[in-house]
């Protein structure tokens, strides 16, 4: 049985965990892709910000749902299979949500920048969505030009790295290229599960390490007292 103190301590840790405790990826400007050492409101090089993004894409963003796909790039069979797999993933990681967006963009529009805009501009109508949005992983697919990108929310960001997503996409490249979006989607989910599991293990280790350190500190203080 955990004592009250321990339970409280766990909760405190959960509340106070800083993203940098887990985060490994550096901050990158979604427009000019410059690496930035700390959080900024606008990119120091290209002055990119949320406001700039809204100016660049002056149209309403769609609702963030599992499939944002007007042209049925993901057919019903693919949607069914992917949905089933996502249900499994959500059982293991109940906080996490993966959304698929298939669209056609002009060549000059970068998928990462568009992803940033879509992620932030998509309406949040209720608290459920507000709770889910930071834990969302968005797969953006430009099926015409053959591009695919991943954008993750602030909450999930500390536990995953961009290079992991790139590797995951690279493994699925063959299926994207063959336009086998069912298989590509399923494989992407499998890769995402692996990445999340790694992140979860890392987080668990860090948490237990922190707990031990705190206990040690407390026992030292008690001894001194």
């Amino acid at each position: 049985m955990k004592s009250m103190e321990e339970i409280e301590e766990e909760q405190i840790i959960k509340k106070l965990c800083r993203a940098v405790t887990f985060a490994k990826s550096s901050i990158v400007c979604p427009s000019c892709f410059m690496k930035i050492a700390q959080v900024v409101k606008t990119c120091p090089r290209c002055q990119f910000s949320g406001a700039v993004a809204i100016q660049r894409y002056p149209f309403p963003a769609p609702m963030m749902v599992r499939f944002m796909d007007d042209k049925d790039i993901f057919d019903s069979r693919a949607r069914q299979a992917i949905s089933n797999r996502l249900t499994q993933l959500e059982e293991r990681f109940p906080q996490v949500r993966i959304c698929f967006c298939a669209l056609e963009l002009p060549e000059h529009v970068d998928l990462r920048e568009f992803g940033y805009w879509l992620f932030n501009a998509s309406p949040v109508e209720d608290s459920v969505e507000a709770g889910k949005r930071p834990w969302t992983i968005l797969l953006l697919l430009d099926h015409v030009l053959g591009r695919v990108s991943v954008t993750s929310g602030y909450a999930i960001e500390p536990f995953v790295r961009d290079d992991q997503w790139v590797n995951c996409l690279r493994i699925d490249r063959e299926y994207f290229f063959k336009r086998d979006y069912r298989e590509a989607g399923l494989r992407f989910i499998a890769g995402a599960e692996k990445i999340l599991r790694e992140g979860a293990n890392r987080a668990e280790l860090k948490m237990s390490g922190q707990m031990k350190r705190k206990k040690r500190m407390r026992s030292r203080k008690e001894k001194k007292a």
Binding site: V28, F119, Y154, F177
Partner: peptide, 30 residues
């Protein structure tokens, strides 16, 4: 099978984005 809950963290809010700061994961498959 056991559900895993990631710990809540402070959001690294940047570029005035309320939910995401964007990412750097992109791949061309054409």
């Amino acid at each position: 099978k056991k559900p895993f809950l990631f710990p809540e963290t402070e959001h690294r809010v940047r570029f005035q984005g309320p939910w995401s700061g964007g990412g750097n994961a992109v791949l061309r498959f054409t």
